[in-house]
Amino acid sequence: MTEYNFAYLDEQTKRMIRRAILKGLAIPGYQVPFASREMPMPYGWGTGGVQVSAAVLTPKDTFKVIDQGADDTTNAVSIRTFFQRTAGVATTTATSDATVIQTRHRIPEEPLHEGQILVYQVPIPEPLRFLEPRESETRKMHSLEEYGLMHVKLYEDISRHGHIATSYAYPVKVEGRYVMDPSPIPKFDNPKLGDMAAIQLFGAGREQRIYALPPYTQVVSLDFEDHPFEASKADHPCGMCGATDSYLDELIIDDLGGRMFVCSDTDYCEARQAAGHKGKDAA
């Protein structure tokens, strides 16, 4: 315990990251460059999110980590244990008990409340990247609000698939200004981004970018008038808890084509089961 500074990073680094976070909160949706550090885990495992979490954690915080909604994957367990050991903070799997939640690819089903911080792990922060590879040009496009290209991507989707096939990392416009990549959350979660009571922070370690949404920010998913945005999910109830309003994972359960759908948010599912809700596949 004593061999690490609180939450692993040194105080100077945390201050530098906090400045980036504050700037991000001041300019919602704007990608703030920061001097990302080497972390004791590979890129792609949430180095950006971990650095943001390290910068915002205090000894009194209760920490939760989810990976695709689950508290019990290798990635989630590793990061939770990391901060247990380096910061000694309390940890939880209960969404409502947590004060800081680091997430990969999901927003919890249970609405977050004021005082909570949601930290996203972001692989590629630049929503325009795939259409315009030049960073100099995408920065200019952001600064001049030239976002026609973003709709070209959606146009291509419709022309190829008949509908907007982008189902995750679905681009949004923040407070009518910056177009932002919400990290690879399913578009089902997009409506939760806007008007959220909690602070949302996005950290991209390899790309060295931090961006943020302060509480109650207006976030609009991009779309066309004749192809409006739709927050879609599998059209089934959860096999375990029977929920019809949650995002579902499809599980293959045998080699005969058997499958079931269960909540991707394990905490939500377990809480419902504990309250007596039962799905058709529940034991």
């Binding site: 030239e146 976002y147 026609g148 290209l149 709709h151 070209v152 146009y155 291509e156 419709i158 022309s159 190829r160 779309d223 066309f224 008038e225 004749d226 192809h227």
Partner: peptide, 18 residues
């Protein structure tokens, strides 16, 4: 696509009807 190439300028000036 060809359509996307031609449509880009339209979208850039705010057209939002696919």
């Amino acid at each position: 696509s060809a359509g996307g190439n031609v449509g880009e300028r339209l979208m850039a000036v705010g057209e939002r009807h696919y």
